[in-house]
């Protein structure tokens, strides 16, 4: 076995393959489709203080090599997560990253405080980049000074590793990466979905009820690799890369570009066992290539 262990702040993952938020439910939905303990970790559906019903239908549409979604952060709320979801997950041996979002700074802090205290939650992932809600989410991720302040405030109440998930819908992602680092964040995950839109030309209606949604899937991978590369060159904290990963080579691209770990999102819908498969393939690859420790692969991009 090659050494696939990676560290995200104080959290050690057995391998760098993580299932991305919004594509993996609350974990147990995948219990019969893969071994939850065999993947690095999974990130929960984004949690809010109160349950949320989400956006009107239609919420998803398929686009070339991708899809657009506007779910609107529908979730059970943090109380139901703790009572109904977490006990079973705890027994599964999974490493759990709790993804969360608020509408105000106070809500972010309160959620972080709650999740930090929960046995079975190993790290927190702060969503400041959802394109599909009116308030909160993306607003907090579109001003570096505010993002730094928010990160610092949340980190004060959060002893567990704090990952901040960045939006690609900015002119330059580097100041945001720096803001997370300056605010004391333990890691960055990038990228969230790209704002996108699709029109049914027969009906002349948008194919998503809210017109604009978030584009994900293999279509966005080159944009994601570029942004992960930019983030990794800007900060010293780990960058978790995601955006369109569908194969071992895709995961390797992100790692070589500077990602310490990767997340798999949309492809969980198509191939529910993909995270475990990629973790196994990564191990086989390292053995074949005689890479003793995955660390030597991370950021190994050759540019000259």
């Amino acid at each position: 076995m090659a050494i696939l262990k990676v560290r995200i702040g104080s959290l050690e993952l057995s391998n760098p393959v993580i299932a991305a938020s919004g594509t993996f439910g609350y974990g147990m939905e995948f219990a019969e489709r893969l071994d939850l303990a065999a993947i690095g970790a999974f990130s929960t559906k984004g949690l809010s203080l109160k349950p949320r019903g989400g956006n009107p239908m239609p919420r998803i549409c398929e686009t070339p090599c991708g899809m657009i979604n506007s779910i609107g952060l529908e979730n059970v709320g943090v109380d139901a997560f703790e009572m109904d979801k977490l006990p079973a997950i705890r027994k599964s041996g999974a490493k759990v990253i709790a993804n969360f979002f608020g509408e105000t700074e106070e809500e972010y802090t309160e959620l972080a405080r709650r999740l930090d205290a929960m046995d079975g939650v190993h790290a927190l992932e702060m969503n400041v980049s959802c394109p599909n809600v009116e308030k909160g989410g993306i607003e907090f991720g579109s001003d570096p000074a505010f993002l730094e302040k928010l990160t610092a405030g949340v980190k004060k109440v959060c002893g567990k590793p704090l990952i901040v998930k960045l939006s690609p819908n900015v002119a330059d992602i580097k100041p945001f990466a720096k803001a997370v680092e300056n605010g004391g964040g333990d890691a960055i995950s990038a990228i969230n979905t790209l704002k996108g839109m699709s029109v049914d030309v027969k009906t002349r209606r948008p194919r998503i009820k809210r017109v604009i949604g978030g584009l994900s899937g293999p279509a966005i991978k080159p944009v994601a690799v570029r942004m992960v590369y930019e983030c990794a060159r800007t900060v010293k904290i780990p960058v978790i890369g995601l955006g369109g990963i569908a194969s071992l080579d895709d995961a390797l691209e992100f790692l070589i570009a500077g990602a310490t770990a990767v997340q798999v999102g949309t492809m969980n819908f198509v191939e529910p066992g993909i995270c475990q498969r990629l973790a196994e393939e990564l191990n086989a690859y390292c053995e074949k290539e005689k890479i003793a420790d995955i660390a030597s692969l991370i950021g190994s991009l050759i540019t000259e």
Binding site: F30, M57, P58, I60, N69, E74, N268, F269
Partner: peptide
């Protein structure tokens, strides 16, 4: 019937309003 992303309950792309909620 509805357009679906995953088919097993995680993408939340095929919700329907019912008397018992979403």
């Amino acid at each position: 019937e509805e357009r679906m992303g995953c088919g097993f309950g995680v993408c939340l792309g095929c919700v329907v309003d019912t008397a018992a909620g979403k």
